[in-house]
Design a protein around this nucleic acid. Sequence first.
DNA 1: TTGTATGCGTTATCAT
DNA 2: ATGATAACGCATACAA
Lengths: 326, 326
Amino acid sequence: MVTINDIARQAGVAKSTVSRYLNNGSVSLATREKLDKIVKETGYTPNTFARSLKATKTNMIGVIIPRLNSASTNEVLSGIDQKARESEYDLIITNSNQDRERELGNIQTLINQKVEGIILLAREITERHRKLINDANIPFLVLGQKAEAIHSMAYSDYEAGYKIGQYAIELGHRDFLFFGVSEQDKAVGLERKNGFLESLKDTTDTTVKIIETSFSKKVAYQDAIDALPNSKASYVVCATDNIAIAVLKAAVELKYSVPEKFSISGFGGYEETDYVQPTITTMSYPYKEMGIQAVENLTKLVNGIDIPYETLLPNELIVKNSTIKR
Amino acid sequence: MVTINDIARQAGVAKSTVSRYLNNGSVSLATREKLDKIVKETGYTPNTFARSLKATKTNMIGVIIPRLNSASTNEVLSGIDQKARESEYDLIITNSNQDRERELGNIQTLINQKVEGIILLAREITERHRKLINDANIPFLVLGQKAEAIHSMAYSDYEAGYKIGQYAIELGHRDFLFFGVSEQDKAVGLERKNGFLESLKDTTDTTVKIIETSFSKKVAYQDAIDALPNSKASYVVCATDNIAIAVLKAAVELKYSVPEKFSISGFGGYEETDYVQPTITTMSYPYKEMGIQAVENLTKLVNGIDIPYETLLPNELIVKNSTIKR
DNA sequence: TTGTATGCGTTATCAT
DNA sequence: ATGATAACGCATACAA
């Protein structure tokens, strides 16, 4: 391994000169050229660890994601990646695999790595999260969930649920089947559902059956196969696009035609909803945009610029062919 | 920030004792308990950089992926992640965004980070790659493409293409439309196509029209809209599942019924092919398994155990409802 | 502009 | 079992 000392020796200068050459750059043209040459020849690159040991700035942002094979996560991530690149930040991406202990461990690891800020795609913020974050005194941004007294960016899921309900009511639907997920996930499990339920309150004669299923298509498919035959619903609300796609498959399997027999809608705005038959009406979320804005916000925090604790991103109803008038 | 010195001072011992306590652990019970307490109270964790500055082992594996929003990439990645976790390796995941300069930069970064080995999900290995790898003298594993004199793992894409062709011929098809991608991608663009073409050679009276499209569904969809009306093919071979899904959508749009009007098959074995109508016949690739084996192989290399330069993974034809006899 | 000396937090060597 | 000290590679305050 070639070090700054090697370069200095070969060039016949002090290593501080080399260091200066590498950083602020107050060196004479002659030595600069000499060093240019030697660095190139040797392929020398500064040792990150030695550098970071001294430095206060590492130019790195840490990201913690809940899992690797999620379409929405990866969209957010690619937004983060794009903006981080533009802002000349390096990214450290870690995966918690939906494991809380691992998530906390990842935060600690990132702090040790002296990242300048952490972006956490989270489901729930516990006291231990708070303690860790406070002790480290590091800019921290939670994505996808709101969190008291912590900077966060989230979608207005309650409103999204409400809008879906409103839309369905306007179409004349009164009997609903709702496929949700665990309330542990505040945004997806709780708020979407509550917003939806709230939207029905102004209308009489509505019925709702709620089924808790999973993010997994396979599980959701099976749950739909079980539930659809016993349902009188004319509109099936699915808490995610994946669930909607699975329910659609179950419907096809059971020979219920969609949307004639019942309408289906999802949440997420995944590209995949465009490539099934019928295409699925969905609440679209600006995932990539969230990633971009997350880095922007974090950059502000890093630079001591104040931002509101909570940033809400809009969502938009995309009507496609899976929903019709009753 | 609390350091090993703080701990030592508080415990009234030398920092070397604390270091020993942290590592091999040859300390008396009394001091151990004292240190346990203090470490817990202060929330002390060793500084990664200082550690890595001395240490020869970092316990980190570097991974370079071409993009963040690809289903296959993420499957591989989740296999890598799982096995790395089991093997107590930390992962550094970097994204090249399909940019060669960035890819080379990432390799350099990872080398600087003193990772113990690098896994590269690659399209092409250039001389500059080789130089970098050789100079660093670090275990290196290329995934998805073969590479001369570099350890690699790949699917037998040629064989996969051949098997698809064979299957279609057996079904009685003679007229083909092939949606491929750029030959720059050796595995997907070249080998699948060549294997397929080779399989037709034993049969007379076959016709093939080849169209080069893109990995993007949107582009593939548009290309299919343009190409399908002018095609007399009874079987459409798509070089990826995404392309197959896009072609299917185009077919529906154009009111061609699949598989009656023509059969469609893909490559990849994506879950998504199970959730469209009809479900799509595909060559399934063990993506996650590749990730797992990649870490196993890299671990061997790190430990100086020799493995063959080339590891080929099998693939399997999954027949579904998009292909029928002619 | 350049060189000298010091310190960053840790591990390793060698005494004790 | 424990402590003192050197070393890792680099940045920087200060002196020249």
